[in-house]
């Protein structure tokens, strides 16, 4: 039956099968709460009738998802906002920090890639600063900036700058000398050479760095918002944990995954647009 389907179709069928099987196992693995009438008197006396907190079954998560996604932008006070608003705050912070990082990393990466001296001079700083967990900057950021919102943005900035910086420098340094010679024999000036030859030649590498950066930024924002609180998807997860609402926790985990995938595929699309075959 599967023989006359394409590879993609077969893969899709298999994905659906895995999803359904996984959900069924999950659903079946959750022990049902006993109804009060089935309990012995002793169990009732020792509090066995109270509902136990447990991992919710997928059916409950789906119901929660439906409820949340059908009204994503409601705002009923500081601790009760729709999922759309929370994700909106997170995306706003990620994009602000990320764009600031790109504005510095890409021109600086160009400079480092064009000049051996700059490369060697910057390299020790990059190598020391790059492996620092972005959250380690948080106390310092909070002290210096004195604003939790801006500190979260700074953390995003500092974590997304390195892959873009390194990839831009690497891409620019690796532009083939032949193409640079084409620019030289056509008397292109420095600016034109940068925009007409080096930028398109290095673009696939630069976009790869940007794609890695946005992935890291989205990982870090959740943790950063758990620390700074107030708004955002990271705060939402932590708040629902404090409410012991595991259904919402699982739902928001899934939403984090979906948004991360969308951000990544946007850059995947951009990457395909600038990639060239030699």
């Amino acid at each position: 039956m599967l023989d006359n389907l394409s590879t993609n179709q077969r893969a899709a069928v298999l994905s659906v099968v895995m999803l359904v099987v996984g959900l069924l196992i999950w659903e079946a693995a959750i022990p049902a709460q006993k109804a009060a009438s089935e309990l012995t008197e002793y169990e009732r006396l020792t509090g066995g009738g109270a509902p136990k907190a447990g991992v919710p079954p997928p059916s409950q998560v789906l119901a929660k998802a439906w409820e949340q996604l059908s009204n994503p932008f409601y705002d009923a006070g500081p601790n009760d906002k729709g999922i759309g608003i929370q994700i909106g705050y997170s995306i706003y912070r990620v994009l602000t920090g990320y764009i600031l990082a790109a504005l510095i990393a890409i021109p600086l990466g160009f400079l480092i890639g064009m000049s051996q001296v700059a490369y060697k001079a910057f390299n020790p700083f990059i190598q020391v600063l790059r492996p620092i967990s972005p959250l380690a900057w948080m106390p310092l950021a909070l002290f210096i900036i004195q604003d939790s919102e801006a500190s979260a943005i700074f953390v995003i900035f500092i974590c997304s700058i390195w892959p873009m910086l390194i990839n831009t420098a690497f891409g620019v340094a690796g532009v083939r000398q032949d193409w640079v010679n084409v620019a030289r024999t056509h008397e292109l000036n420095g600016i034109k050479t940068a925009f007409m030859v080096i930028l398109p030649a290095a673009a696939p590498t630069i976009i790869t760095g940007m794609r890695i950066s946005i992935g890291i930024a989205w990982l870090v924002i959740v943790a950063a918002e758990m620390l700074v609180g107030g708004t955002g998807i990271g705060y939402y997860v932590w708040n629902e944990w404090n409410n012991l609402d595991l259904t919402s926790v699982i739902f928001s985990i899934l939403m984090i995954g979906v948004v991360g995938m969308l951000l990544d595929s946007a850059f995947g699309f951009l990457q395909r647009a600038v990639t060239y075959a030699e």
Binding site: D178, W179, N181, V182, T185, V197, P200, A201, A203, V274, Y276, A277, E278
Partner: peptide, 13 residues
């Protein structure tokens, strides 16, 4: 002074 290089040196993009 125009140059034709051995490896063509066309811009692949």
């Amino acid at each position: 002074r125009g140059v034709v290089f051995q490896n063509y040196s066309l811009l692949p993009w």
